[in-house]
Design a protein around this nucleic acid. Structure first.
Lengths: 218, 218
DNA sequence: AAGTAAAGTGAGTAATCACTCACTAATTCT
DNA sequence: AGAATTAGTGAGTGATTACTCACTTTACTT
């Protein structure tokens, strides 16, 4: 919750050179909650204003349209979620300690994104929902993921394949399988069955085992 | 497309003892298209009526509410999708040819559901979207999956574990990993990147390999 | 302290929404 | 063939929608 504020404040500051107004924070918080509860299309600006304790006009003072409000919420999250995947030490790590570089690489990346998802579950839900219908979000995903994350991932995989520690599948197949497994875990854990009892540490280790052996070389 | 008609006709007939009216078919077809394109909440009954070539009142002659129309579309699909998982020969197959019963079991089930998803991609999209916000759909999923599919799956897994051909993870973890992998594949194949060139046979085999080795025993 | 710019307000608006209803057209029943 | 039931229609309705705008309040600058 405090992290929430920080992320948006930092991003807004970087864009506008100003901090978020208290009311603006309340609007963002309320919008995230309501979008996650009922979906973007079924959420009304009047309800968001009411929950934020703010006049409806105040929303439109800061965000030109309702869609603009959605993007102001979703875009920073998408960026924050992928940024660590771009950090150079993640790819370096794979090469530094061969041939057992794959497992710690995966472990670190997954546990890291797990913690982030844990603190931003509603945002995860909003993104997964809205990316299906908002072309602007798809475009953003493609430009960031396909142009930045994918190539880095691919370089690491090619190296690992040469070491023989990863099976010789097409890179996009491998990446699809890893992401399916991780996203499937995050969705089950935080969106489908957040109330269940979860042994997070063990479940993470099992998930990593699944990927490691599923994609192991030779 | 022809299969579409058949499924709904059969189900409607079983419920009402009557066949679907031609206009009713047009309504269902148009609703599926539009729901998949813009999402349930953003679709208007007037637009559905227009695309179906039907007066708006006709929709409400057959479906009490817009939500009733959604359920009439989604429920038969959910049932059809899970029915083959309940068929007894699927679980039998695992025990009949030990110890290599796991792979053919998986292969058959996955290829089968792949074909079904291929012919009903828009419906798959609608279900995945709306299950997040419609408690009635969640309830239906839980009653069918958790009470029917899960126990069958579990019995098969316990047997396979005793044979040593499947790793000793909790059953719900194993099932989660299998479903994540399969759903991730279907979503990527038919919803995210349906335009890409896909080697379906090979990709299916790789996906099965991934699961087999990821969950292999010993 | 005065002046200016930004933040906040809430009644008002045109458009759209799901849904109704009195009516006609087509089918089925006897 | 006539009666009765069902299918189909489309103008009409009240509620809700995202968004505007003239106005007040707060914050910052000098």
């Amino acid at each position: 919750m405090s992290e929430f504020k920080e992320i948006y404040n930092a991003i807004h500051e970087a864009q506008d050179g100003k901090e978020l107004t208290p009311k603006q924070e309340q609007i963002l918080k309320a919008a995230v909650e309501i979008f996650a509860e009922k979906g973007y299309a079924s959420s009304s600006t009047s309800e968001i204003a009411a929950r934020a304790g703010v006049a409806e006009g105040t929303i439109f003072r800061h965000y030109k349209t309702k869609k603009d409000l959605l993007f102001s919420i979703v875009t920073p999250f998408m960026t924050q979620f992928t940024v660590p995947l771009l950090a150079s030490h993640f790819t370096k790590e794979v090469f530094d300690e061969p041939p057992e570089g794959f497992e710690p690489f995966l472990k670190k990346i997954i546990k890291n994104r797990f913690e982030f998802a844990k603190e931003n579950a509603p945002l995860l839900k909003i993104v997964l929902q809205e990316i299906a219908f908002q072309p602007e979000l798809q475009a953003r995903y493609e430009s960031v993921f396909l142009e930045e994350v994918f190539p880095k991932f691919e370089r690491a995989l090619n190296e690992l394949k040469e070491q023989g520690s990863v099976i010789d599948f097409p890179n996009r197949s491998i990446i699809r399988m890893i992401i399916s497994t991780v996203v499937g875990f995050l969705v089950t854990r935080f969106l489908l069955a957040p109330e269940s009892y979860w042994e997070d540490e063990e479940e993470l280790d099992r998930t990593i085992h699944f990927i490691m052996y599923g994609l192991g070389g030779k």
